[in-house]
Amino acid sequence: MIEQRWKRWVFFYIPLTLFIIGTLFPFYWMFVTAIRPDHELYRSWRAANNAPFWTLQPTLAHFQDLLARTTFPRWLWNTFFIAVASTGISLFCGLLAGYALARLRFPMAGALGTSIFVTYLVPPTLLFIPLADIIREFHLGNTPWALILTYPTFLIPFCTWLLMGYFKTIPKELEECARIDGATRLGAMVRIIFPIAIPGILSAGIFAFTLSWNEFIYALIFLSSPERKTVPVGVVSELIRGDIYFWGQLMAGALLGSIPVALVYSFFVEYYVTGLTGSVKG
């Protein structure tokens, strides 16, 4: 397919560039805000010497302050730990349940699948109130386990559903061959099917990880010590004081808070692409 040059520009380079600018500009803006000294941050938008797109006196003060004044590294670690653990649990449950729903015949399979999915629809706004009851019953308040065990409530349905779709795309013959060779059903599942499903598992895992990384309200309710908080809750509750916002530090926190996930994504993005394909093909 040979394209004329101008066509390639008009239909490809220009729109792609615009999309990249649109997507990334807020990040650039966060970055500029984070390194801009305070006295520049609060200048009139009409000020003659206003140069919003860059700063002549970049400073790391906001980053330093964020690290010195708050327990940001702790929050980062907490968030990471909670996200990994809850993702792990959800993947484990979702993997087994997804396989059962996709492959095994048993009564009520359809109904069970639907009801697992329906839990994803339960409006979460006020769920934290009765959930607080359970957290108290299990004495989980102010421990990471409060979140590690509650996040799966919205992650499992998602993982199950995604993986169920993925398993359906794997030809049944593969499994049957293995079983003829003497493998048990369980063995075939673990040794044959799961390895093939790795891209699907990764994509479900990455998505689940993002959702836990993002969560706000449960983390706000169930954790109380400053050093146990997660990034979104910590940043919001320490850097906003009534009618005073620490914009520089807030943006620094937002940036630092998304970098770890960004790294994970950049490693896995290709897997993610192939993984999702499988799951939705069926």
Partner: peptide
């Protein structure tokens, strides 16, 4: 929200 959850779950 913190007070609400605290009261409801005692």
């Amino acid at each position: 929200p913190r007070i609400t959850a605290a009261i409801q779950s005692r």
